[in-house]
């Protein structure tokens, strides 16, 4: 997936170059007359997958590292009417969403499943470190509104097909109550860490809402910013180990080239 991203970034940079040299080709001019426009974009995403609101079990966020997430996308815009005020955008975006967090929790329901089917279920009080990374192909479908000749607003739903999944981490410095809060108590300290990996339990499809703004800095250069807000749990619906739903909320910003 990373290699694919690199390749696509190279392709976009190449497109910048080629297009910069010979301004609007006949094809693009023709498209433009039909109200169609194209752009390619490269950007960064920062955000996290989070329960909304935070469950009471989370007592403190002790650390948060928004990893570098690259995104690359191509969009087709269709403008309507003579004034081209309203339009529709369909895109194709390759992106990753990731984060690392460290939290202190109290009475956090969990279940660890071992390679041989071992199941340790209980309530954890202590620290939890989590690493989350997904790569995905996203298709946004947005309504666009030109508010000035330089600024356009966008809003609409998206679907993502998740191609790479990682949700793993460990619990440390705390204690587990086996089965439920009245069960046997066992302390984990120092080197004793219980690791978990729920990567396989991440859902393959995600949907959400995306809102953004484009600013046409120059004729071909777009500066953009988007907020994407996931509406379904990042985990499969039959996954109950983490008792609350988590939603990906990311800000994506970067540059684009409009043909």
């Amino acid at each position: 997936m990373n290699r694919m991203l690199c390749f696509l970034i190279a392709a976009v940079l190449l497109a910048f170059n080629v297009s910069a040299q010979k301004d609007n080709t006949p094809g693009i001019v023709k498209s433009s007359l039909m109200g169609l426009e194209y752009d390619v974009r490269a950007g960064l995403s920062i955000g996290g997958a989070t329960p909304i609101p935070l469950p009471v079990e989370i007592r403190e966020i002790e650390g948060f590292n928004p990893s570098i997430n690259l995104s690359i996308s191509g969009n087709v815009k269709k403008w309507f009417g003579a004034d081209k005020k309203w339009g529709l955008i369909v895109g194709l975006k390759l992106e990753s969403k990731a984060m690392e967090t460290r939290a202190r929790v109290k009475n956090y329901g969990m279940e660890i499943i071992g390679d041989g089917g071992e199941r340790l279920k209980g309530n954890w009080t202590g620290h939890v470190k989590t690493k989350f990374r997904e790569t995905m192909v996203t298709i946004p479908v947005m309504a666009a509104l030109n508010v000035s000749h330089r600024v356009a607003l966008r809003l609409g739903p998206y679907v993502s097909f998740v191609t790479g999944k990682d949700f793993s981490g460990h619990v440390f410095d705390g204690y587990l109550r086996e089965n439920n809060p009245t069960g046997n108590k066992v302390v984990f300290e120092g080197d004793s860490q219980a690791s978990y990996d729920f990567s396989e339990d991440l859902a393959t499809f995600q949907t959400g809402i995306q809102a953004g703004v484009d600013w046409k800095a120059f004729k071909h250069l777009i500066v953009y910013g988007d907020l994407s807000w996931g509406l379904n749990n990042i985990f499969k619906s039959d996954f109950n180990t983490i008792t609350f739903n988590m939603y990906p909320v990311y800000v994506n910003f970067g540059f684009g080239y409009a043909f």
């Binding site: 935070l54 009471v56 989370i58 403190e60 966020i61 109290k106 809060p181």
Partner: peptide, 18 residues
């Protein structure tokens, strides 16, 4: 984000379950 979570979003501690 850390500040946001740490201040606005951390909810009141639940009563003990043990």
């Amino acid at each position: 984000l850390t500040e946001l979570f740490a201040t606005a979003c951390i909810r009141d501690e639940a009563p003990n379950a043990e």
